[in-house]
Design a protein around this nucleic acid. Structure first.
Length: 178
DNA sequence: TAAGTGATCTCT
DNA sequence: GAGATCACTTAA
């Protein structure tokens, strides 16, 4: 099954709108002649300068610089010494925002899906496209709106009540995500 | 419930 | 340079 590859324009829009629309799209990875594709079932938005749960909340650093760049680039970083986190940058240049892909139909959990797709730091700052071997497709999978739930983001208690409680996580009910 | 793992960030 | 932290997973 093939679909339309989402271009940078798709991601150069308000982060929450993009996040919600990513549910049901397909993450696709090309490894040699192999192709792996799996439907996105869970995402989390990190949006703007003031979001205290976001890496960008304390300004620009070497690590988070990609978040300040143009939309449609991958932001990949290592957490807990073991797990690669896959994010897609959203919004205009110089506005820090990204969406963490937390689950796909074949692998639930952000650390598990990067292992499943063999994703690591070498994708960081690359533009999503066929030539980067990692992109997102619209396969016109229709997910009923009532099945798309939203709730607080995971693992961000340190961000304080205001920010840790923002319902910026979107997920499909009764799939691989709780 | 707690250990594992290492890059990054915030102090000196 | 040192110490703490961390957008997680697994085994128990």
């Amino acid at each position: 099954m093939r679909g339309k590859i989402l271009s940078a324009d798709f991601f150069n829009r308000p982060t929450l709108a993009v996040a919600k629309e990513l549910i049901g799209k397909f993450l696709v990875r090309k490894i040699g002649s192999r192709r792996i594709a799996s439907m996105i079932t869970e995402v989390e938005a990190y949006d703007g300068f003031h979001d205290r749960a976001s890496h960008a909340s304390r300004g620009r650093t070497d690590r988070n610089a990609v978040m300040f760049g143009g939309a449609g680039c991958w932001y990949v970083y290592l957490i807990y010494g073991m797990y690669w986190m896959l994010n897609i940058v959203t919004g205009p240049k110089d506005y820090p925002a990204a969406i963490l892909i937390r689950g796909v139909a074949d692998a639930s959990g952000p650390g598990r899906l990067t292992k499943f797709f063999k994703i690591n730091h070498r994708f960081n700052s690359k533009l999503t496209s066929r030539s980067s071997d990692l992109w997102i497709e619209d396969q016109r999978m229709k997910i009923p709106q009532r099945l798309i739930k939203r709730g607080p983001r995971v693992g961000v208690a340190y961000a304080g009540q205001i920010w840790s409680r923002k319902p910026w996580r979107f997920y499909i009910l009764h799939s691989n995500s709780k």
